[in-house]
Design a protein around this nucleic acid. Structure first.
Lengths: 243, 243
DNA sequence: AAGTCTGTTTTGTAGGACAAATAGTCCGAA
DNA sequence: TTCGGACTATTTGTCCTACAAAACAGACTT
């Protein structure tokens, strides 16, 4: 047993927590749909047997997630939640554990590789043109690297081509994490780019060309290669945490 | 201009919303780290110029995300947030728009394809054995399909092999969505399995064998093929939405 | 029929009171 | 001295009341 297992969880469930649960149960059991209206606060509080303030603290949480909307006089209605609403607010690399950061980086790499078949499927003339413009504007810095802005602009366009709003949002939410990682693991990343021949690392330009004239499979492999340095980083840093 | 552009957004930002923002700003500006303690509620409310009830509604949101912890007498402390905390609560396929559901399905497919290099990298003898056990227990139903439980058990093990807690959690949170999709798009899925020769659809058994004796590239391609029916579903249903 | 006014309902905000938990202190006994 | 128990002060948790603000509904006016 490690010291981690000894810590007191102290999950002293508060009344607000339970009310929040109850509300969600209530929505599900009554099969409420977006647009359906809820009882007013006073009634709800009475039905739940709690003070209005407690009810409102629970409702406040659901409002943050977009599940509940309210307007004076009109009352409260259910709505389709913004599942990323909470994440958007609290994503801050500064306060995240190293392992958590690596998890997110890993997830990003996974998404970029996994989405490449869809990017290839959805590509249009216009997309290719835009990508070419982005690539043409890129200015190479030291060690064949790009600025963070240029780097992310290119990848953002690829995300856009998935046509998947959730994924696009996810990329935006994760963005600060990569900036942070590039800063804090720059040594490992630099070492890798210096010791790996450029030919083994497809540039953005190469990717566009393959997307344009190659096959879906070639594109995915190239993306995989393009992201290889993160494989390297993940492999090296996850190891450390285990020890 | 479509009718969608006419709707009243009514983003009447409430005081609680602004206090929530202010708190997050305050945390960032003061570079608070997990473990650091916050001023007590009365002081905070005074500093913000709002009633304690309002402050508490804002804090309640941050507590839901795990960013703030509180204990009587001790006070409040900052903690590393659970970025999926909000999502976990409100993920309910019943109330999600079709496009949103497809986005999630798409994301799952993307993750499963993208994670296959990592699954291959991380595989151990023990993992293979477990997978073989899972596959051996599987009972084929009509049309070469499996029960939802068996299906998800196999894939869950693959997620586990990524060693990425965030991704494992994400899979669990998404699980209800797939159940829902399998129910509601069963016609399309059944049609596909009926009209596509079994040889073109790698079974779980095939996947394990490739994972065991094949290459990383073969494994990824097999995963891609295994998920092909979802490509089919996504292609067909996303189309509809556009019209 | 159209616009205006007024009353009423419901959420939004404020503030006070007390309960419950518990860290810290002090005191007394082994 | 050290341990334990009682007390105290502090802070969050819960309840309650009051009023402000928004906006729907219906009556009333022109």
């Amino acid at each position: 047993m490690t010291s981690k297992d000894l810590r007191i969880t102290d999950e002293s469930t508060t009344l607000v927590d339970r009310v929040e649960e109850k509300l969600l149960d209530y929505f599900r059991e009554n099969k409420l749909m977006p647009g359906d209206s809820l009882p007013n606060e006073v009634e709800l509080a009475k039905a739940l047997g709690v003070a209005r303030t407690v009810l409102r603290e629970a409702l406040s949480r659901l409002k943050m997630m977009g599940l509940v909307k309210s307007r004076t006089k009109v009352g409260m209605t259910l709505a389709e939640p913004d599942i990323l609403g909470g994440m958007k607010r609290v994503m801050d690399p500064r306060i995240m554990s190293k392992n958590h950061l690596l998890d997110i980086l890993n997830l990003r790499v996974i998404i970029e590789i996994g989405m490449s078949p869809f990017v290839f499927m959805n590509k249009t003339e216009k997309d290719i043109e835009e990508l070419e413009q982005i690539v043409d504007r890129e200015r190479v810095l030291r060690d064949n690297q790009l600025s963070v802005e240029e780097e992310s602009k290119f990848h953002f366009k690829l995300y856009e081509m998935t046509g998947n709003d959730t994924i696009i949002q996810l990329n935006q939410i994760f963005a600060p994490v990569f900036g942070y990682i590039k800063d804090h693991f720059s040594k490992i990343l630099d070492d890798y780019t210096k010791t790996t021949p450029d030919q083994q690392r497809p540039s953005h330009k190469d990717l566009v060309n393959i997307l344009k004239d190659g096959t879906a499979d070639q594109f995915q492999k190239a993306m995989r290669k393009h992201l290889e340095l993160y494989f390297h980083l993940l492999h090296k840093e996850y190891q450390k945490g285990d020890g």
